[in-house]
Design a protein around this nucleic acid. Sequence first.
DNA 1: AACAGTCTCAACCGCCTCGAG
DNA 2: TCTCGAGGCGGTTGAGACTGT
Length: 354
Amino acid sequence: MSRKPCCVGEGLKKGAWTTEEDKTLISYIHEHGEGGWRDIPQKAGLKRCGKSCRLRWTNYLKPEIKRGEFSSEEEQIIIMLHAARGNKWSVIARHLPRRTDNEIKNYWNTHLKKRLIEQGIDPVTHKPLASNTSPTATTTQPGNLHSLDASSSDKRYSRSSSMPSMSRPLSSGFNPSSEITTPVQGGSLSCKKSIKKSNSTSRLLNKVAAKATSIKDILNATTIPYESFSNGFPEQTRNEEDSSNALADFDPFSQSLLYTDHEIHATSDLDMDQGYDFSYFLETLGRDEHNMNVDQYGHDLPMSDVSQDVVSSTSVDDQDNMTGNFEGWSNYLLDHAGLIYDDTEYDFFDKQII
DNA sequence: AACAGTCTCAACCGCCTCGAG
DNA sequence: TCTCGAGGCGGTTGAGACTGT
């Protein structure tokens, strides 16, 4: 069975877009708005198929798109979300303001996936590679989180960060979004700086990957009665003497339900593909400090008296605040993860490979 | 300097979803 | 309920830049 190509027509151009084509498309969309992609080429006078126009716009020309180097926080989010949702790039992209699914997908395939493999972690399952279980991959105690030097892929990443792109016609000429983009590929970062960042990134990756690995298992292992969060959780539950029981009521992601009108899933059948959305979880990570309570882990704790309108979306400017909070959540997960399986803390990682 | 190998990522391909009629 | 088309999505490709020999 063959499917008719979406774009059939004589003289349709393929390949890299030229500056003139970009100008034409931008001009048309500014005047007429997005949508009606199939008609845009003809109306705008472009020898491209509508789909190509849409992709060019959404992945490259759209003014709000952020380009360039991914921050450590963004990398953490990608890894965590990928661990839970898999190759749902569009879903992941919704949690990374101004990033496109295509860019995240590329970044995952060219950087993060390789680094996870190098660290002995299966990028698909986020579990240790069975045939290549290195000591670093199985050592997950927080106080002993391994730190690696920049991997070979990191070094390549450093190289590419200052590498001029061959297929970015805008980089050397007209750039409609130059005012808001960070054209790392244009050489704004020195190689030295990139390498330094890569070392840091690698260490972060080690930590996050180890933690992210367990998220699915944590979620699958926990029961989430909504009521358990309604009174100052999780500070109370963490102080419970019977910590294992307390943990059974804890799911870090379910806090999102506090702010949504979603149906409360108070069952043990946590299906990550059905209605579970990390948006509010992640949004709380970037909230202004005065809007949240922070526990010893540095969490933004959603308190029962926090109304929905207090919860603001994560703005781009807030992203710098995300590291500590995210690490806080990760540490919280890590501290409690071991309790899910047995009485040995921090041993969830080993548990998975048994 | 020349060549081969590697890497990146924009762009493409084809399938899927969903809404309109 | 069915059909159709637009848009969305994830996987793949290939041009060009970089690195190593």
